[in-house]
């Protein structure tokens, strides 16, 4: 029970409003800002639901990283338009009207669309309304067997022990996403530095922040990784913080962004999935199953996997923001 009975309804209302704005608003920049606000409000909603792990991830990845990716996309589109000589600035005006499209579909088609949409909405409402109370789940079972995994955080146990397979595939998907970005590179530029521009003046406030924050950020990142074994935290949140610190130092012009052909960079990218796979395969001889951890050393193995994942996630997320290589390899 909350002291402010209107807090949750108000939160739901602004979440829905920002969600509608993000889709419906006509200025791309405003839509992206609405989406970022939506992500932050969702993080608060997850806290209200008691899911602090999800809230951390939502704030870091849903609002933070995705927001940065979308904002840099907007800036890139604006630059592209300016180069082409379009006079509609993307940051200020609505989108130019597209070329004349086909006439509106007929009355029958429109009616059918309305009926189908209403049917889907009704089915969703029915599905939610018919959920059994209390909802079925494995909460009690996870809680009673938590000690076998060696970790004390049930979320970490689910992510790396009970559903380790999902997490392994997730990190591989993330790696593929980076390969997708890299595949947009022009042939001549392959192997060069990603096109993250740094315009910071060497004596400016950005360079100052780039010196001041990384030690604190590194500490917070390592803390989030280590605390994942007991309390909310873990590889994804830690990786995001480390990636942000890295990007900050790059944007402040303090460290060069590495070439995508660098061997150390490639190793950092694959160490997480590689450690995960190696420990997973070792599960066959050690415990008789893929990703089976012997209870005696389960905690050590999970921490090892998390450490590898933290390095890889930080590198992948940073390079996702940095984008495809744009400088020719020298």
């Amino acid at each position: 029970m909350t002291a402010f009975p209107l807090l949750d309804p108000a939160l739901c209302f602004v979440i829905l409003t920002t969600a509608v704005l993000a889709v419906a608003i006509r200025t791309v920049f405003a839509a992206v800002v609405s989406f970022i606000v939506f992500g932050l409000l969702m993080a608060i909603a997850w806290v209200r639901l008691g899911a602090v792990d999800v809230a951390l991830t939502e704030a870091a990845i849903g609002a933070g990283l995705t927001g940065v990716l979308l904002l840099s996309t907007v800036a890139r589109i604006a630059k592209h338009r300016a180069d082409r000589g379009d006079d509609v600035p993307i940051l200020e005006g609505p989108e130019p009207d597209p070329a004349p499209t086909d006439p509106l579909p007929g009355l029958a088609t429109q009616s059918l669309a309305i009926v189908l949409s209403a049917a889907v909405a009704a089915a969703l409402v029915a599905a939610v309304a018919l959920l059994p109370v209390p909802a079925p789940g494995l909460v009690a079972e996870v809680g009673s067997r938590l000690s076998e995994t060696g970790v004390e955080s049930p979320v970490t146990a689910v992510l790396l022990a009970y559903r380790g397979y999902d997490t392994l595939l997730e990190i591989v998907v993330l790696l593929f996403a980076l390969l997708g970005v890299w595949s947009l590179t022009a042939d001549a530029r392959w192997g060069g530095q990603p096109g993250l521009r740094h315009l910071a003046r060497p004596d400016g406030v950005m360079a100052y922040l780039g010196r001041l924050l990384p030690p604190i950020g590194l500490l917070v990142g390592v803390y989030l990784f280590w605390i994942g074994g007991y309390r909310p935290g873990g590889a994804f949140q830690a990786g995001t913080v480390l990636a942000a610190v890295w990007l900050l130092a790059v944007m402040a012009g303090l460290v060069p962004i590495p070439k995508v052909s660098g061997i150390r960079l490639r190793l950092a990218l694959v160490i997480g999935p590689a450690v995960f796979l190696a420990i997973g395969l070792a599960g066959y001889p050690l415990h008789g199953a893929f990703l089976g951890y012997p209870p005696a050393i389960a905690k050590v193995l999970i921490i090892l996997i998390e450490a590898g994942l933290t390095i890889s996630i930080a590198t992948i997320l940073g390079l996702l923001v940095a984008g495809a290589p744009e400088e020719r390899p020298s």
Partner: peptide
């Protein structure tokens, strides 16, 4: 402290 640092820095950058 981090909030103040971020606000001061972002304020400078936007003003510039």
């Amino acid at each position: 402290a981090l909030g103040m640092l971020a606000a001061a820095t972002v304020g400078q950058l936007i003003a510039r």
